[in-house]
Design a protein around this nucleic acid. Sequence first.
DNA 1: ACGGTACCAGACAGGTCTGTCTAGTCTGAA
DNA 2: TTCAGACTAGACAGACCTGTCTGGTACCGT
Lengths: 187, 187
Amino acid sequence: MSAATSEGRRPARTRILETAARLFYAEGVHAVGIDRIIAEAGVAKATFYHHFPGKDDLVRAYVNEQSAAQRATVAAMGIESPRERLHAVFTYMCDFGSGPGYRGCPFVNTSAEYPDPAHPVRQAIAEHRRWNRDLYRDLLAADGHPDAERTADILLLLRDGIAVGFEQEDHATVRTATEEALARVLR
Amino acid sequence: MSAATSEGRRPARTRILETAARLFYAEGVHAVGIDRIIAEAGVAKATFYHHFPGKDDLVRAYVNEQSAAQRATVAAMGIESPRERLHAVFTYMCDFGSGPGYRGCPFVNTSAEYPDPAHPVRQAIAEHRRWNRDLYRDLLAADGHPDAERTADILLLLRDGIAVGFEQEDHATVRTATEEALARVLR
DNA sequence: ACGGTACCAGACAGGTCTGTCTAGTCTGAA
DNA sequence: TTCAGACTAGACAGACCTGTCTGGTACCGT
């Protein structure tokens, strides 16, 4: 009996994506080979190449998966006011950044390994960033902020700073700095 | 006659470091192999391993070199007032980020390829960040800012945001957002 | 003249990378 | 029962990786 399908194991594609996400995030894209992913996912090589034409396609799927997860997290937040919602987003970032497995922003990290902005992986990252920036703008506008566009650009700067900061600096310091920065930026 | 030393060519170590800096920055650390560095530097493999015990040592030297260059740039700035000096630092970042060869912050990018914070390369990066943060704090304190410590933390957040932003977003937008963010953060 | 130092060219070893291919197993639907 | 589709195991090719080693040349201070 094949253990793969009858024992209620998750489908191969899912296992590949989950394993890739874990390894890519923890160790970097170039540092993790296909052989390791298929070994830890318990998948045959032919199966991997059946689902993904090449490694770059897997990386793109990984990026899109991360983006979908973040959008779902935001969508699942209670219906607070726009302002509370905006703060909740940044609070969530701080909580996530303070967690034990934090290893920086998956989008920033992955982007660093793909120098060409025209590469499909980079374009997937750019799309996520557009969503993120638009989220800030919409929440600011809904809150009646007088300069939602420019303030959204500033919040995106802050977002990236937080993502890098929690990877590099003391967590408590970054959290305090984030709260204070938010207060100053939003006046 | 050996072309290496008599024709006024730069010493091998310098050529290695310059070539490594160019390639590491443009394409990433893992993506560039030793073979390519020694080929483009016009250096024998034995010479490379004579100067650097291994690739990680070269990466560490690369990071330290970038740090030294940034410190020298700041040191070479005219003796403006602390506040002008602080603005000049951020203006320089914007100019650099808008340049044609910009590929993100070398420290952030390199850090993304070294997951272990205890790694010597990461520690070299951390040392540079301490210098940077202390630079902000000292300039703020010299300017009489009432909360130099916390504001320096915020400026470090902003710095990282700028470094990522110029790589990912429209340059003019990031520049405008930076100026506005600086104004709001410094009140 | 001599010895140390820096340098060059390139073969080599042992490993890992992506991607292809063969060959066979299991499951579910027609 | 037959057949397509998803899956498994693993050999293989060709390139690239880091690092070692041999062997030889040029310069420089003594």
